[in-house]
Simulated assay, not measured.
Amino acid sequence: MSDELPNPKLDDHPGSNTEKDPSDWVSGDDPMTGAQASYLTTLCEEAGENLPPDDLSKAEASQRIDALKAKLGRD
């Protein structure tokens, strides 16, 4: 019996800690970043939707980005 810990690099489907629900973000209540605002504007224009309000939080912006990407059929 081995006492070695499993090596996640050898796992075909390792769990990911890089994806976290935006509502769980420590900085989720911070104002959206400039990059988020720019990307949201582009996605809204492409989807024919109203531009996002300027006062979105990082978490809200991320959720809007995900929804627009899904609507536009992007990964």
Score class of each variant (00 low, 15 high):
Met1Ile: 07
Met1Ala: 10
Ser2Leu: 14
Ser2Trp: 14
Ser2Asn: 13
Asp3Pro: 01
Glu4Gly: 09
Glu4Ile: 08
Glu4Gln: 13
Pro6Arg: 07
Pro6Asn: 04
Pro6Glu: 07
Asn7Lys: 09
Asn7Thr: 06
Pro8Trp: 03
Lys9Ile: 13
Lys9Arg: 13
Lys9Ala: 13
Leu10Ala: 11
Asp11Gln: 14
Asp11Tyr: 10
Asp11Asn: 12
Asp12Gly: 05
His13Thr: 13
His13Asn: 09
His13Lys: 11
His13Ala: 04
Pro14Gln: 09
Pro14Tyr: 04
Pro14Val: 08
Gly15Phe: 12
Gly15Leu: 09
Gly15Arg: 13
Ser16Thr: 07
Asn17Phe: 08
Glu19Asn: 00
Glu19Cys: 05
Lys20Leu: 13
Asp24Arg: 09
Asp24Trp: 01
Trp25Glu: 08
Trp25Pro: 08
Val26Gln: 15
Val26Ile: 15
Val26Gly: 14
Ser27Ala: 14
Ser27Phe: 10
Asp29Tyr: 03
Asp29Cys: 03
Asp29Leu: 14
Asp29Gln: 15
Asp30Cys: 09
Pro31Arg: 11
Met32Ala: 15
Met32Phe: 10
Thr33Asn: 06
Gly34Pro: 00
Gly34Asn: 12
Gly34Ser: 01
Gly34Gln: 01
Ala35Ile: 02
Ala35Asn: 14
Gln36Ala: 03
Gln36Cys: 01
Ala37Ile: 01
Ala37Phe: 11
Tyr39Gln: 12
Leu40Trp: 01
Leu40Lys: 07
Leu40Cys: 07
Thr41Arg: 07
Thr41Trp: 08
Thr41Glu: 10
Thr41Asp: 13
Thr41Gly: 12
Thr42Met: 14
Thr42Tyr: 04
Leu43Met: 12
Cys44Gly: 11
Cys44Thr: 13
Cys44Ala: 15
Ala47Phe: 06
Gly48His: 15
Gly48Glu: 05
Glu49Pro: 06
Glu49Trp: 03
Asn50Leu: 14
Asn50Ile: 05
Leu51Trp: 01
Asp54Tyr: 00
Asp54Gln: 14
Asp54Pro: 04
Asp54Cys: 00
Asp55Asn: 14
Leu56Met: 13
Leu56Gln: 06
Ser57Leu: 11
Lys58Gly: 11
Ala59Pro: 11
Glu60Leu: 00
Glu60Gln: 15
Ala61Thr: 04
Ala61Asn: 12
Ala61Ser: 12
Ser62Arg: 12
Gln63Lys: 09
Gln63Glu: 09
Gln63Val: 06
Asp66Ala: 06
Ala67Cys: 00
Ala67Asp: 11
Leu68Cys: 08
Leu68Trp: 02
Ala70Met: 05
Ala70Gly: 08
Lys71Gly: 02
Leu72Met: 02
Gly73Ile: 02
Gly73Phe: 07
Arg74Phe: 09
